[in-house]
Design a binder for these strands. Structure first.
Lengths: 228, 228
DNA sequence: CGCTGCGTTGAGCTTCTTCAACGATCGTGG
DNA sequence: CCACGATCGTTGAAGAAGCTCAACGCAGCG
């Protein structure tokens, strides 16, 4: 599988013609990252953006004391740091590989050059950024309106829905990372998982979690009910 | 002042040529809203987006119990609901006029038509969306990493910096609305303002707030210090 | 004048975090 | 191959932050 095939799989570049792909392939650079390696840090100059070819990447912010809030977890086909390309500003957050990852890097100036000649590429970017904005909207809502059990319930239901409503879901990230993604800490997450088990809403064994009572999880996610 | 002049003031449309403006003026529709009037509700079909000509608009989410989280407060020249245009999805939040407002409305299909012929318009939209994404990044950081005093301090410093670092700032929205914007409730906001007064960090009289100790506010905003 | 919305204050309570300790797992080097 | 260390997950106890509920003053406005 060559670079063009990989690119065609990303929503960002879907539906472009072969000439477009050739041009993209012409400016792309490849980077290999090991688990735990920094891709860039908040404040670094925004020299371009990335698309995950393989692996897993987290985008996150750190507080003064070092507490982490994950903004995104990104897998194959997903772009990140596009914002830096268009604002011309520095990266607004940190990026780290969660596992061995292969990345495509698109330098800012060359990419903008492509964009200007290419309305459909621009439309794709607009759609992608819009979707991301919508995700952030949900995230802000969750962080400010819901309690942690509600956020966790929403996350589990989301995972399930992404898997044909599977009864059992597998966490693709460590529980510590999940805690950060949900805006809390590992201890709290652990306690809430225990309580959900006690209530028979779920049955969790390590990274595998079975959803036993969807209705109850729904109620938690909508804030309609509290976790006993 | 005609429509074209108004449009040219919005960052969204800055730097376009006169032909572009004429086309935009050709598809725009004008709407007048009274204070408290709904512009659209979450879940409504995303038929187009708006630019504020005059007045003030809030974009917000509601929890099950009716608690509100404001996502944005928008004034003249600022666009909103662009996301719906590109995702083709329903509006992801509610919009309400905070005061008597005059709005420009751009219907989805006509606007997309313009975009496709017009790379510089697309580039402007990309830059605008990216900036908004960056703001959301900050907001998520604030909501999850900072305590309420820190968020308030950051907000006051932001207001001041938008006014040539004025020593005294005036809140353009009601304190209840500010509470929602900061992800808290009026009672908590009120108590924190009182504490900041006691510490002589600020001096507040109604909507006018003087910043007496910028260093202390900075420390709060960065999470470096706690409010006594 | 009375109503309504906004802001403030107090008391009690819930949720979450902090701090500390401990068990399990896993990869690595001896 | 085993032992060790590191990371991760879990549990307990105590404390802090913010929320709920309730009451009240105040201003603007019909």
């Amino acid at each position: 599988m060559n670079i063009t095939d990989y690119l065609a799989e990303s929503p960002l570049f879907k539906g472009l013609n072969s000439e477009n792909y050739k041009e993209l392939a012409g400016i792309v650079m490849e980077r290999d990252m090991k688990r735990g390696q920094f891709i860039f840090n908040e404040g670094d100059e925004g020299v371009g953006f990335y698309v995950v070819a393989s692996g897993l990447v987290k985008i996150y912010k750190l507080s003064f004391e070092g507490k982490e809030q994950i903004l995104h977890i990104l897998g194959p086909g997903e772009p990140f740091a596009e914002v830096a390309v268009f604002t011309g500003m520095n990266y607004p957050a940190n990026a780290m590989a969660l596992e061995q990852s292969h990345l495509f890097f698109f330098p800012r100036t060359s990419f903008i050059h492509l964009l200007k000649k290419n309305p459909s590429l621009a439309m794709n970017m607009l759609a992608t950024l819009s979707l991301r904005l919508k995700q952030f909207t949900h995230m802000i809502e969750a962080l400010s309106l819901k309690e942690v059990p509600g956020r966790l319930a929403a996350y589990l239901l989301l995972l399930s829905s992404q898997n044909n409503d599977a009864a059992t879901v597998k966490l693709s990230i460590a529980k510590t990372q999940l805690a950060s993604l949900l805006g809390t800490i590992p201890e709290t997450l652990s306690r809430i998982l225990t309580r959900m088990n006690n209530q028979q809403y779920i049955e969790s064994k390590g990274a595998d979690i079975s959803l036993l009572n969807r209705q109850a999880l729904d109620d938690l996610a909508s804030g309609e009910k509290r976790l006993e």
